[in-house]
């Protein structure tokens, strides 16, 4: 006699989740033959610009710098792209929320999966580049999917949180953009973690993205097993983000219809 019997489950709506991701991919790539190439252009330009500026102007001493950059930039873009898009996952679908009763989590989760799909496609294309640039192939790569999964779970938590908060605070998108900019420079994407002065290292360790990016570098750049402490930290962040994100989302979702 509870309301549970009519509360739709997320599992029941897996078809919707799939269809929303396919829709986003179709809409993005259908009308432009070059659509997919465009989405590769952004990381490519970032890699070129950072390579030139950091290596030849600021003279950063990192061997095989383009390889180092590719490994970090692609997952970073996955995170930042998802976070920004998540701020519009609910507010951009006001019409659906108001008229149809489906589990609201589907929307931010579809945003996450759409970006994961794009990331995997980009990875496929950059894969030969990794080989060409001489990435070390060691058994450590076997852990890549695990670290990626942790990052995706973490990103999912962030997406749930941001999408829900953005309903009440529409300017959260701008704040997110600023926060991402700060976070980018606090993440060892364009430099080594070891270059960070000892005194402030704790601050960088508090940054969840540091854990994932450092692990990617360990596996694909250094050719060694990722640091156990970083993987553990990454797992904790993933669980924490998902917990807090879904808690905030659940508390706020009842008012979405009225606040949109």
């Amino acid at each position: 006699m509870s309301t549970i019997e009519t509360q739709p489950s997320l599992f029941q709506y897996r078809e919707l989740l799939k269809n929303l991701v396919i829709k986003d991919l179709k809409v993005k790539y259908r009308n432009s033959f070059l659509g997919f190439l465009w989405s590769l252009l952004n990381p490519l330009m970032m890699i070129i610009v950072y390579s030139v500026v950091l290596r030849y102007i600021l003279r950063v001493q990192i061997e095989n710098f383009p390889l180092f950059l590719i490994i970090g930039i692609l997952p970073w873009n996955l995170f930042s792209g998802t976070a920004i898009a998540a701020t519009e996952a609910i507010t951009g679908n006001a019409n659906l929320i108001k008229k149809i009763a489906f589990p609201r989590e589907v929307l931010p989760l579809a945003t996450v999966l759409f970006h994961v799909a794009q990331f995997l496609l980009a990875l496929l294309v950059f894969f030969p580049a990794l080989a060409f640039l001489g990435a070390p192939w060691t058994p450590a790569i076997a852990l890549y999917p695990l670290v990626l999964l942790l990052q995706v779970v973490f990103t999912g938590g962030v997406a749930l949180f941001l999408s829900a908060i953005a309903v009440a605070y529409r300017d959260i998108k701008y704040l997110t953009e600023i926060a991402l900019m700060i976070l980018f420079w606090m993440t060892p994407v364009v430099y080594h973690f070891s270059m960070v002065p000892e005194r402030v290292r704790w601050l960088f360790e508090l940054n969840p993205m540091t854990a994932y990016i450092t692990a990617y570098h360990d596996m694909l750049y250094w050719g060694r097993w990722p640091d156990a402490q970083m993987v553990l930290l990454g797992s904790l962040w993933a669980v924490l983000a998902l917990g807090v994100g879904s808690w905030v989302f659940r508390r706020r979702q009842r008012l979405f219809t009225e606040d949109l």
Binding site: P8, Q12, Y13, E15, L16, K18, N19, L20, K23, K26, V27, R30, N31, L96, I100, F102
Partner: peptide, 19 residues
């Protein structure tokens, strides 16, 4: 941007129907 056919599948899944 989607065709009628694609919208049928998307829309019906919004109401919780399986493939």
């Amino acid at each position: 941007e989607l065709t009628g056919q694609e919208n049928i599948y998307l829309n019906a899944s919004l109401y919780g129907l399986t493939r």
